[in-house]
Amino acid sequence: MAFSLAVSPCPNDTFIFHALVHGLIPGAPHVDLTFADVDVTNTAAEKGAYDLVKVSFAALPWLLGQYQLLPCGGALGRGCGPLVLAREDRDLTGATVAVPGDRTTAYLLFRLWSADRPPAKVEVVPFDRIMPGVADGTYDAGLVIHEARFTYPRFGLTALADLGEWWEKDTGLPIPLGAILAKRGVVDPAEAAEWIRTSVSMAWADPDASREFVLAHAQEMEPEVVRQHIGLYVNEFSLDLGDEGYAAADALLGRAAAAGITPAVTLR
């Protein structure tokens, strides 16, 4: 038996799933791995393309008919939220803002944050083109995630807003960014959760074991940025969402439903 798995090539995902995809977990099945940006997996999961898949929490209202949310392996945390960047301090009235996907958690947070602000024009842009596009004037501002928190000054950009900081101050909760889903009727969710938790624990126990795999897919990130990335996004919520993790996801999707942005959804 084999299962298909789709995650991003980002260091947090390759670090978490190294042991599972390399057959190092006794009793776990063979995994056919696909790397894809989260905006791609959000769309592919709506078509049921993968058995296990990393998606945005913001996409869950369209996916939970086919999939079940797993309590581990995802990306939640504090101090790790999306940033709104520009070349200089400015407001966003009439601005063109590059965003990494229309069903990403980053964009959902942006919509909630900007609800009472003058409207901006939004354009969906591949993540790796956002900062260069803002720097060269193609876009007035950009919404960025992941390692961009560490690298945006290199592009001469300034942070207009930290949406994670805004969210945490407003709710007191961590930011629910990425979720792992298991296809209903195909993958036993309890078994899958156990495989993933074991994979996380093995990664923490021996970080050097996954280093070559992580760096090979880190999209030209230098080792120090990779280390910071893993340290920020792989945390206690990677092992277990717990009550606080579920509360964060409920708060995000509850607010989105109340604002008419997403359908209402029950996570558990």
Rank of each mutant, 00 (worst) to 15 (best):
G94N: 03
T96M: 08
G81S: 11
L109E: 00
D37K: 08
D188Y: 11
T14M: 10
I25Y: 09
F110P: 05
P153W: 09
A148W: 04
A141D: 04
L69E: 09
L85C: 14
D188T: 05
G185C: 08
H217D: 00
E147T: 08
A45V: 05
G65A: 03
G77R: 01
A182N: 07
L163E: 02
D128H: 12
G231C: 09
L160N: 04
E244T: 15
V214W: 11
A58Y: 10
R184F: 02
M1P: 07
A28K: 08
P223A: 15
A45Q: 03
G137H: 15
T104G: 15
V234A: 07
W166D: 08
D208F: 07
P100G: 02
A141I: 07
F35E: 02
V226Q: 06
F237D: 09
R268H: 15
Y152S: 03
P174R: 12
C10I: 06
A148L: 04
P207K: 10
L85F: 13
T138D: 06
G156Y: 12
R211N: 11
G231D: 13
T105N: 01
A115D: 06
G65Y: 03
G101A: 05
V31F: 04
Q219L: 11
M221L: 08
A28Y: 10
T171C: 14
P9D: 13
L160M: 11
L24N: 02
T262L: 12
T138I: 03
A216K: 14
S114V: 00
P26W: 12
E244F: 11
R268I: 13
Q66M: 07
N12H: 02
G23A: 06
P119A: 14
W62Y: 09
T198I: 01
R149C: 10
G81E: 11
F17V: 09
V7E: 02
G101C: 05
D39G: 14
I16M: 05
D39Y: 13
G156V: 13
G79F: 13
D39W: 15
L181S: 05
L76P: 01
P71V: 00
W113K: 10
A19T: 04
G164E: 14
A247H: 00
L241Q: 15
S56M: 02
G65K: 05
A249T: 09
A193T: 14
L177N: 14
D188Q: 09
G260K: 02
E191C: 11
R255M: 05
P126Q: 12
D89W: 00
L239P: 01
P207G: 11
V55K: 06
D136W: 01
G79T: 12
L85D: 13
D162S: 14
A182T: 01
C72L: 12
V21E: 04
R103S: 11
D162E: 13
C72S: 15
G101Y: 08
K121S: 14
G137M: 14
L83V: 15
E236A: 13
A95L: 08
T158M: 12
P118C: 10
H146F: 12
V225W: 11
V40P: 06
T43I: 11
V234C: 05
C10H: 09
S199T: 04
I175F: 15
G254A: 03
L85P: 14
A141M: 07
M131W: 00
Y233Q: 00
P11E: 01
R78Y: 12
L253N: 03
F35C: 02
T93P: 00
